[in-house]
Amino acid sequence: MTTVLKQRWSVVLLTTLFIVSFSTLYCISSYRNAFRSKVEIAFVTSYFRPEDAQRSGEINVCLASLVSNFFIKKVHVLVEAKDLPLPSFASHHPKTKEVLIASRPLMGDFIQYSCDHLMDHRVIFANADIFYDSTLEYFATISDEDFDATFFAVSRWWFDDGGDDGILGTTLDPKRRKGLTPYPYPQWGSYDTFAFRPRVICEDKAKLKDMVESLNYTLGVLGAENRLLYEVKRQYPEMRFENPYKNVVAIHIHQSTFRSAAWAGRVDLDGKSVVI
């Protein structure tokens, strides 16, 4: 009887040792992709004051989400003089860097600004109507090797009430799960957030100039993100693309009916379009 008990205890101890060893190795492996406080994440966005009060409130909410986000070291706000001052919660925040510009920024301006001022940062940029939570931490967990080799374009999440989407005038599928829901491109959501290491695509000045000149349209127009990916892929075919929409909650806030006149002008025609 004693021998049988000893054998059973030996099996239990060996099993426990195996589980502990496996868990330790897993934790060490996971730690390699854990948040690293020394990672410098800079966010580049724009700010404007639409005449529509609801739309203005949406823009302010999104800017507030950036300056309050723990994982962003600095928020670079591209803003025209006519749209100053910034809301006090942003203008008085030490994390905010106000950048005066002559006119509404083009897609290429976000790339150029990142190359001019943020070469050694991990840069995230987006339009002014994207809201974030702490899942932006994802961009601080990726290894330098993987981050530098990847251009990230993240699909939006949306609060789905199952009714009219208010923009395209179509009825949403009543069987789809309601609530805060990811919309991976191309079914419904588009890419609303972009992240990259400027040094990877900025050091070749000729390629950079060509890319910036080709991205001569504002964010938010139809096909804007697909044209961006096309231009990046054209210059850097070895660049890997990733859409980590399951890891990063990027919420597009646009309940207001206000839209710029340029919205419907597609920029990804004639094959100049890439999807992930």
Rank of each mutant, 00 (worst) to 15 (best):
F241Q: 02
W188L: 15
A262C: 11
S190T: 12
F147E: 02
E213Q: 15
W263Y: 14
L86Y: 04
L14M: 12
A262F: 12
P198R: 06
P182Y: 00
V4N: 12
E58W: 06
A224F: 09
D165G: 08
L208F: 10
K6Y: 15
K233A: 03
T150S: 01
K73R: 13
T2Y: 15
V275P: 05
T150L: 04
S103W: 10
G271F: 05
Y230R: 08
P87Y: 01
W158T: 07
M1K: 07
S91E: 12
F35K: 09
G169Y: 10
V44T: 01
I41M: 12
D270G: 13
M1C: 15
A261F: 08
R227G: 01
V212W: 11
K205Y: 05
S23I: 12
D204V: 03
L168E: 11
T96H: 03
Q112C: 01
A64F: 09
R122P: 02
G223L: 06
P244Q: 04
R266P: 02
S23Q: 09
K175R: 15
R176T: 11
A264E: 07
D109R: 11
Y113L: 12
P237S: 06
K207M: 02
L136R: 02
L215H: 03
K6M: 15
D52I: 07
Q54F: 08
L269M: 13
E58H: 07
Y191N: 02
A262Y: 11
L168V: 12
R199W: 01
I72R: 03
V200P: 02
D109L: 12
L63P: 01
D146R: 10
L269Y: 08
G220Y: 01
S21P: 02
A128N: 03
H121R: 06
F70Y: 11
D146Q: 13
G265I: 09
T2G: 15
W188M: 14
K97Q: 14
V274S: 02
P105V: 02
S214L: 03
F43W: 11
H92V: 10
S273T: 10
C202K: 09
D109A: 09
E58M: 11
S68W: 04
A224W: 05
D164C: 14
D144Y: 05
R259G: 05
R227Q: 08
I28E: 13
H92G: 09
G169Q: 10
S91V: 11
K205E: 09
P182S: 07
P244V: 05
E40L: 13
F194G: 03
A140T: 08
M239N: 04
G220R: 03
I142G: 00
V44R: 00
E225K: 00
V11D: 13
T15G: 15
K178E: 00
H252A: 08
S155R: 04
P186V: 07
R199I: 00
V39H: 06
K38C: 08
D204G: 06
P182Q: 07
T193K: 00
A262N: 12
F70S: 12
F110V: 05
R36T: 03
A195R: 03
